[in-house]
Design a protein around this nucleic acid. Structure first.
Lengths: 204, 204
DNA sequence: AAATATATTAACCATATGGTTAAACCAACC
DNA sequence: GGTTGGTTTAACCATATGGTTAATATATTT
């Protein structure tokens, strides 16, 4: 096999790179083909359309993150552990998968319906009632007096915002504040800062 | 005048709407034209190219937010006041200018060089050494023992993340957690939650 | 009112782009 | 060695799209 079955995989990788750099409409099929070092017709042979290739790439990527967070988010029974472990996992994953993040970010803005569908599909099959269960768990923590944020939704938004945003807004942050982001030092500091803020700010 | 000078303004508005919905390459000049209710040739008559129109729209939008935050960010001498006032201004502005946010968000991902230039231009002329001064001010607060976050950059990233992210990630948050965002109730709660978290988490 | 400058339009153009096709290639099996 | 089924390619195609042009309408100036 070797070369043969590689093609599909190479296309998916090239697709991720291109789509995450240029968005759906900015991406050219020719460029994906040349990046994957195959003839353009192969794209359509394996994936039938740009739209479809895009969805496959997205699915492929979404499936990568879910298993990583599922265990923490569902199994952790203690708010302190939750606020210590989740940011580290999120931030490390995001900093290691910036293409993925960019692609998601594009969808957040532009192709909202599609990403809703993709997430529903993927969450539906692999994640079940996850999100609702998490909200319930957080509510219980509040009722027991373990945390100070009364609204579970904002509790979660706070965490995700602090972990993700820096990696989306990276270029502008670098420009405005004239500092480099993305090296290991920044990431470690980011993890620390987020965990400190969350624990001190939401734990009782 | 009336109808006449309107055209340019109408084009800029239509441009903002279209560019923020579809990104640069996803936006069609014809659609901008029809939204602005003018002939397509007018776009090129006034703005000479898509690229140029895009930049004008972006500049137009960036200039709107800077004055709003400048005073707070430069004049506020007290960390408590800073953390109370900034989130409210940010979140209200973002929730009222979602097109603007979306357009910026596109640039953050896709056209990083351009947004760097635009910001440098606009900040350069209208904002001066603002960002550096803010970082210095925050450093002083830390040295005086008024705040617990030692890194001024992360201090600022924390604030902006918490204020902005929800409005970018809105569709996916709504999907995952099955809740509606964007109505007045959510915004008020968001402001409260952010201010609480920031004060409790970063003030000493 | 004539002349001049500005605004507006319909019809075009060149090229880029997603997608197709028909033929060739190649491995495995008989 | 030939047949079969998947894989790969070069050459095409139809259409969409950014951009142009030349003529016309509308103000503005003299």
């Amino acid at each position: 096999m070797g070369k043969k079955k590689d093609a599909k995989e190479r296309i998916l990788n090239a697709g991720l790179k291109e789509f995450s750099s240029w968005g759906f409409s900015g991406t050219r099929m020719d460029k994906i083909a040349s990046r994957a070092e195959i003839n353009k017709a192969m794209l359509f042979y394996y994936f039938s359309s740009k739209e479809n290739l895009y969805q496959e790439v997205l699915r492929h990527a979404v499936r990568k993150i879910l298993p990583k967070i599922r265990n923490i988010i569902l199994l952790e029974r203690n708010p302190k552990g939750f606020l210590e472990k989740l940011p580290e996992i999120y931030i490390n994953f995001f900093s290691e998968n910036q293409d993925f993040i960019k692609m998601i970010a594009f969808d957040l803005i532009q192709r909202t319906d599609m990403i809703k569908t993709t997430f529903k599909e993927t969450i539906g099959t692999e994640f079940h009632q996850g999100p609702q269960m998490v909200l319930k768990k957080i509510k219980k923590w509040y009722d027991k007096g373990a945390i100070s944020e009364s609204d579970p939704l904002h509790f979660m938004i706070n965490i995700i915002s602090l972990c993700l945003f820096a990696f989306i807004a990276r270029p502008i942050i670098e420009t405005i504040f004239n500092q480099k982001i993305g090296d290991q030092q920044f990431i470690q500091k980011r993890i620390k800062s987020v965990i400190n803020l969350l624990k001190q700010g939401m734990l009782k």
